[in-house]
């Protein structure tokens, strides 16, 4: 009886999740009348804007990851090592982006950093790119911080630090050569998750008026029929790729640890 309900619940769920995936795939192949073809994908890949926006978002994702790692790893490390009393506050801050909607944050950016403000970041393309990167770093902060902090929990930060210091290592060396390698899996997981979040992000990019992949998809969706599902398939594949990579590094590290 239990098993019957279990299977029912499970299969209904699977159906709900599979149908949209089948739907978008099927639709994306229907561009040519009467037969399945990859025409929609060809159109997408032939569109220069696709490559422009996609590479723009990719670069921004890269920048976000680098910035996020440089910001989060030393902070999480320092809090664990020297400032355990600051932990609740820091954790609270890192969780705020889950509570404050992204649209509100970017609204704040636009008003705070407009051309007439002290720090007119939105005045130039580069400044806006920087602002967008900071926005993405904010969005990714909860995930990045948690991943790194969990990673740090599994190693004995204090002992490693003292050992390195007794051998004459400085802070930079300790962070780069001791701590980072030890939480590399966590950092990579956070990085791929960041990539998955940033690559198709719409709200911030659209409101800051930057030529990112998310707004491009939206624009295409408003004007075309067959390309959007093709884009959805591509985006889904990217997300799947990111999650797959996370699993891969996690599994690989477990393997490594098991060998020791």
């Amino acid at each position: 009886m239990t098993r019957f309900f279990a299977w029912t619940a499970f299969l209904l769920g699977v159906l709900f999740f599979v149908l949209p995936l089948v739907g978008m795939t099927e639709f994306s192949l229907k561009m040519r009348r009467g037969e399945y073809s990859f025409d929609a994908y060809r159109r997408v890949f032939e569109d220069q804007r696709f490559w422009d926006t996609f590479s723009y978002s990719l670069i921004l994702a890269g920048a976000t990851i680098v910035f996020g790692v440089l910001l989060v790893v030393p902070t999480a490390y320092w809090v664990r090592l020297k400032l355990p009393q600051a932990r609740p506050v820091i954790e609270f801050i890192t969780l705020l982006p889950l509570v404050i909607p992204a649209i509100v944050i970017v609204f704040g950016y636009i008003r705070l950093y407009n051309t007439s403000s002290v720090l007119p970041l939105t005045g130039s393309a580069l400044g806006t790119d920087f602002l967008l990167t900071m926005g993405y770093a904010t969005l990714a902060l909860p995930y990045m911080y948690r991943a790194v902090d969990t990673g740090l929990r599994t190693i004995d930060v204090a002992t490693l630090t003292e050992a390195a210091q007794s051998l004459g290592a400085g802070w930079i060396t300790i962070l780069a050569r001791i701590i980072l390698p030890n939480v590399l899996v966590a950092v990579l997981s956070g990085a791929f998750l960041t990539l998955a979040i940033v690559i198709g992000e719409f709200t911030m990019a659209a409101l800051l008026n930057r030529p990112a992949f998310g707004p491009f998809m939206q624009l295409l969706g408003a004007n075309r029929a067959y390309e959007p599902p093709a884009l959805a398939v591509i985006a889904f594949a990217i997300t799947w790729g990111c999650m797959g990579l996370i699993q891969l590094v996690t599994r690989f590290s477990k393997h490594e640890r098991a060998k020791v």
Partner: peptide, 27 residues
């Protein structure tokens, strides 16, 4: 694994997927 993917598959492409499935001309 799938839940990890699906929970991050939000935003614009998700809308496309549902339009292709449950929209007026959806599967």
């Amino acid at each position: 694994t799938f839940s990890g993917v699906a929970s991050n598959f939000a935003g614009v492409p998700l809308a496309f997927a549902f339009i292709a499935t449950l929209g007026p001309a959806g599967l």
